[in-house]
Write a protein that binds this DNA or RNA. Structure first.
Lengths: 110, 110
DNA sequence: CTTACATGCATAATTCACTTATGTATTGAT
DNA sequence: ATCAATACATAAGTGAATTATGCATGTAAG
């Protein structure tokens, strides 16, 4: 796991992007997908994940659908049109941030 | 200015790296240097800067020297040996963070 | 067969880096 | 003279995270 400080401010972008790329997903599934993509380096905690998802839903960036799988509840999230346009901005913003930081730290990225 | 959320967790690394690269510097000078290197995109606020410098000093990563310039006080900061070894780690950590994030966000960096 | 781990959701208390606001004082430009 | 820049510092407040807790089901190992 990375220094968790660096992750701050990236959670929303991660959630939106993963949902944009993978369509309908539920919370736990997202944590597993992020774990896989990050090669085990980003482990989303529930205390961060669920409040973040709820917030994104409240802002109209995500839509939900609750499904009963046997006796277990699953809450599926889908990205909205507004969410899709926001995630583009966020990713651009992140790339610009990287460029700026690499200039300040005088390091070669990639 | 970037979305300030992304900057969280990067301040210490920025301060240590700039001081490692530029030798003895005082607070205000650091803000100007960072502004220059970031093309005006990172504007360090005093409320973040000074407490961060004090903390790094308390941790033995920076050393200080107070100089009277005419009637104006300047507090010069120099990075210590411990600080130098830490900044290397921090920069490596940051690069790894970028790699991980680019994998999760599926974006090409640089 | 029970114990532990994984799955699945959720919220409350706390932490901590940062922003915003405030304070003090000097220097230089219009 | 007055404003902006220079130069330091601390206090109050914010907000996104961590940590802790709670509930419940499925499944593999011993």
């Amino acid at each position: 796991m990375h220094s968790p400080e660096l992750l701050k401010g990236t959670l929303q972008t991660i959630l939106l992007k993963v949902l944009k790329d993978n369509g309908k997903m539920y919370g736990y599934e997202i944590t597993q997908k992020v774990k896989e993509l990050s090669l085990g380096r980003i482990l989303l905690t529930e205390g961060a994940l669920y409040p973040a998802l709820h917030k994104l839903e409240a802002e109209g960036l995500l839509q939900t659908e609750t499904v009963l799988m046997g006796k277990r509840v699953r809450k599926y999230y889908t990205i909205t049109v507004t969410g899709k346009s926001l995630v583009k901005e966020r990713v651009v913003e992140f790339r610009e941030f990287i460029k700026t930081m690499s200039a300040v730290l005088q390091v070669q990225i990639a």
